[in-house]
Amino acid sequence: MSGNGVSDVSNRGAIQEVVLQILKDLTSEWDTDYSGAIGPETLLIGDLDFESIDVVELVVSLEGRLQRRDLPFEKLLMEDGRYVEDLTVRQVVDFLESELGKRTGADA
């Protein structure tokens, strides 16, 4: 199983569900001012009070949930050689959908 992804994360809806669940779990005990629901337009730093390093934690959490260590997260986190300033949930889902789709295609 390791390195092949998990079978239940095979489409955009499932991917988004995984991302949202991870974000909820991660932030459930944080002392932040954000009280709204987490959705596609939620900003990790601007809304959820992620520090930049928490974005990296999210990456590792996703790797754990998806059982993949080969996803090129630098494509998500870096732009023109610098780290991005913030990310929406949608951007994370877009990235995963693209990368998991590539793998699925390759596997097929």
Binding site: I53, E57, S61, Q67
Partner: peptide
């Protein structure tokens, strides 16, 4: 195994404790 079995059978733990990474 970088992903011990519990991660695939207990999705709630998928978030993990990557705090160490942080």
């Amino acid at each position: 195994d970088p992903f011990p079995q519990r991660e695939s059978v207990e999705p709630v733990l998928g978030v993990e404790a990557e705090a160490e990474m942080v």
